[in-house]
């Protein structure tokens, strides 16, 4: 299956409600794969994907190692592992050191997505309390992908988005309610 676009979403403190709204508004036939990297408690291994599933029309799963990326699916990075995408369009895990105090790290996911999918990536960075995500958004920007950041003033904690906005040219700085319509217009031809 040829992947024409892919969406990666990163968030930390204060991002959960935004993700929930995002997922609840995605059309059932939205085909572009979505990969979520949200910082969360390390020994909470189960239940998070289930909680997100309740709110959405699309299947939310934690991928298996080496699982093929498929359309019409939301993938969630599990706690205590980095999640990367690989060149054969599969997922790969790593338990390497935390990056910006984070595992999973948004930088790790976003950067690998930029390497593999180049300008086909749409990166979305949400509310959060550290600077994980800035390097990843930079990688997406440099490969010609699209960068979207939640407007810092609308974030519960604005460290993460503030850092991205300061350090890289972000194409879309949006309040939460504008994110979905923008993503839909950017992906329209694909579903």
């Amino acid at each position: 299956m040829n992947i024409e676009q892919i969406i990666v979403i990163g968030g930390s403190a204060g991002s959960f409600p935004v993700v929930n709204v995002f997922l609840s508004q995605i059309p059932r036939d939205f085909s572009v794969p979505i990969i979520l990297c949200l910082h969360r408690l390390k020994n909470v291994r189960h239940g998070f994907a289930e909680a997100l599933n309740l709110k959405t029309n699309i299947r939310v799963i934690e991928p298996r190692d080496k699982e093929q990326i498929k359309p019409n699916t939301v993938y969630l990075a599990p706690a205590n592992y980095h999640l990367l995408v690989d060149y054969d369009h599969t997922f790969a895990y790593s338990i390497a050191e935390a990056v910006r105090y984070s595992r999973p790290s948004i930088d790790v996911l976003f950067t690998s997505a930029a390497w593999v999918f180049q300008d086909k990536v749409i990166g979305i960075l949400l509310s959060g309390a550290n600077t994980d995500g800035t390097d990843g958004m930079s990688a997406i920007y440099q490969k010609g992908g699209i960068t979207i950041v939640q407007e810092p003033s609308t974030c519960t904690v604005e460290t993460m988005t503030g850092s991205a906005v300061q350090n890289i040219p972000v194409q879309y700085i949006l309040p939460p309610e504008k994110i979905i319509p923008t993503v839909i217009s950017l992906t329209q031809k694909h579903f």
Binding site: D86, S94, A96, V108, S112
Partner: peptide, 9 residues
């Protein structure tokens, strides 16, 4: 080795 991980290392 898995390419993305190795590259990152």
């Amino acid at each position: 080795y898995a390419m993305s991980s190795l590259k990152r290392r």
